[in-house]
Design a protein around this nucleic acid. Structure first.
Lengths: 158, 158
DNA sequence: TAATAGTATACTAAATATATAGAGTTTATA
DNA sequence: TATAAACTCTATATATTTAGTATACTATTA
């Protein structure tokens, strides 16, 4: 049930881009910057961002002052979409995948116990990842920062 | 986010054992039988069942008339437990794993956006798999069979 | 004591994951 | 217009995991 490094790095980079977007003006950020900030091997990240670009989630600008930027508003890019591009289907087992269905060879799918449960799992995962956008993540990060600065919520004795 | 063949085969075999249990009297079933019924390579299944036995979920009987049987009542064995034994942690990323935590290297876990979302995913998966027992699966399979036999629920015009 | 059935390891081929390398292309700007 | 910055593209390399095979061994029972 694991996310690959490829998927993890891609998500981190996209979140990084989304968070920086309001600060940079045009939203353009270099691979090298992202790689350093997120501790990702730069050459590996190149491939990942290129894949994401070819899938239409990123645009890029070549040459001096160039870099990558989100192809769409942050609230229109979901984590589920990013993961599907980099790691394939969310479903734990192909016979419950919406985007990449394959029969699993059980005698009758309608009464296959494993399938019934895994369908629930797939839906639970999709309910989160397909409904969480980069914008949502930005908000949660911001909220988490605010919560840290406001010590009233976790009272300390002097 | 995928379940390995090892995990899938193990789950299918355990479900098979749980379903057969009431019919066989002592619940003892041979590897070969399970392998044929579930279309699993027998030698591979041997390894898997042995692992499950060493983890304490199965008992076995050697010699003629031998085989494997559940070490505990079917309602005390969860799918989450089986998967953890065969495939490792349920969590998509180590830094949100309960059983196999590892830091991911982000500057601050408390404000890491990826971690916040993946924690939700881990919990959603665990909420299903750690709360679904082999007995629950048996019931769902039975219900599904009943539903198929009762055509009233899906009316057909003659 | 022979057949049955699980035990235990070792091995291997293929796929996948995780990168690394290097030559090429585009762009800004000095 | 030359140069350096930055992305593009493809190939290659390495390590790990997956999925399975092989083989010799041990225990049980008819």
């Amino acid at each position: 049930m694991r996310l690959s490094k490829r998927g993890e790095y891609g998500l981190r980079a996209m979140i990084d881009l989304a968070i920086l977007e309001p600060e940079t003006g045009n939203g353009v950020v270099q691979i090298k910057e992202i790689a350093e900030r997120e501790k990702i091997p730069a050459k590996f990240l190149e491939q990942i961002l290129l894949t994401l670009k070819n899938a239409g989630l990123l645009h890029s600008k070549m040459g001096i002052g160039g870099g990558y930027y989100l192809a769409r508003p942050a609230d229109e890019i979901t984590l589920g979409h990013i993961i599907r591009i980099l790691d394939g289907p969310l479903a734990p087992i192909r016979c419950v995948s919406q985007m990449a269905y394959e029969p699993c060879g059980c005698p009758d799918e309608r009464t296959c116990g494993l399938r019934l449960v895994m369908l629930d799992v797939r839906n639970a995962i999709s309910d989160i990842l397909d409904k969480t956008s980069l914008m949502d993540v930005c908000k949660r990060v911001e909220d988490a920062h605010l919560k840290l600065e406001e010590p009233s919520s976790s009272p300390q004795h002097d």
